[in-house]
Design a protein around this nucleic acid. Structure first.
Length: 265
DNA sequence: AGTACGTCCTGATCGC
DNA sequence: TGCGATCAGGACGTAC
């Protein structure tokens, strides 16, 4: 599912596909409830004839900047975007289509309909800088967060604290760092926080590098299925490092996999 | 204030 | 083989 590398990849895809300069003409949706702060009709009254100026990413949000202001796209769990010609058959999960004035369309596919189109309220900006940015460091969360009893996994997935990490990259980073996901954050040493910071960066960048190689090769399906995980995401499968059986629990109702040998309590 | 949990949503998978 | 039940979870709202 889309997390930070997937959204960043989508941003790069949109720019490479030439979205900048395209001009909105009309819009179609089959999920009106997924429009936050704006209806399709209101969207057209604001963005009709507006040219796309740039696409940015804020956490897991895509910011579509136009001459007439910005709106946001969130891919939710199963969302993916393509810029395709009108003649190109629509995917069965196409939920929203933004038609441009030159026979191209921005198509928003989303089987589970968790994705959103947002106008007005920007997402809450979290405390830390983006994990893909150079200066990212968990230590910068500050004592008020680092002294909490809350589990490190729960902290890492909290979008109001850290922008953009989701369930899968959190599990992978904790696995790479050898840290048990249940560990209260206050019990982590400075060294462990540094290590975890590095593992978060490397797991994100590794996927992004993979995406850079395949982006644009096959537009028919989303890219996020081929992410190279080291962690085994199946209970009782052998750990890829030590062979012990993988454990499964739920943290914040999210499926959590870990190895008790490599990530002791 | 911090934390936990219900809600949305439907394709894929599981189990009888 | 078929069909109903269950599972998956990002972000937000509500509740404790």
């Amino acid at each position: 599912m889309p997390e930070l590398p997937e959204v960043e990849n989508t941003k790069r895809y949109l720019i490479e596909s030439g979205i900048v300069g395209l001009q909105f003409e009309s819009v179609w949706t089959d999920s009106p409830t997924k429009w936050m702060g704006i209806t399709e009709e209101a969207f057209l009254s604001v963005f009709r004839d507006a040219k796309v100026v740039m696409v940015e990413r804020v956490a897991k949000y895509l910011v579509i900047q136009t001459e007439n202001g910005d709106f946001l796209l969130h891919l939710g769990m199963t969302g993916w975007l393509r810029i395709q010609n009108v003649d190109n058959p629509a995917h069965k999960f196409a939920r929203h289509v933004f038609h441009f004035n030159d026979s191209r369309e921005l198509r928003f596919m989303d089987s589970r309909k968790f994705g959103k189109i947002i106008y007005g309220e920007p997402p809450k900006v979290s405390v830390l800088c983006d994990p893909l940015a150079e200066g990212f460091a968990l230590e910068d969360l500050g004592l008020s967060v680092l002294s909490r009893k809350r589990s490190i996994k729960s902290i890492l997935m909290d979008q109001s604290l850290i922008p953009g990490l989701g369930n899968l990259y959190t599990d992978e980073s904790l696995f790479q760092a050898g840290i048990n996901p249940f560990t209260p954050i206050y019990k982590l040493s400075v060294g462990q926080l540094d290590l975890l910071t590095e593992k978060i960066k490397t797991s994100l960048i590794r996927s992004l590098d993979e995406y850079d190689l395949v982006r644009g090769v096959d537009d028919s399906e989303p890219y996020f299925s081929m992410t190279p995980w080291d962690i085994q995401r199946k209970e009782n499968d052998p750990c890829s490092k030590c062979g012990a059986l993988m454990q499964f629990s739920r943290i914040n109702a999210r499926g959590t996999y870990y190895c008790l040998e490599c990530q002791p309590m």
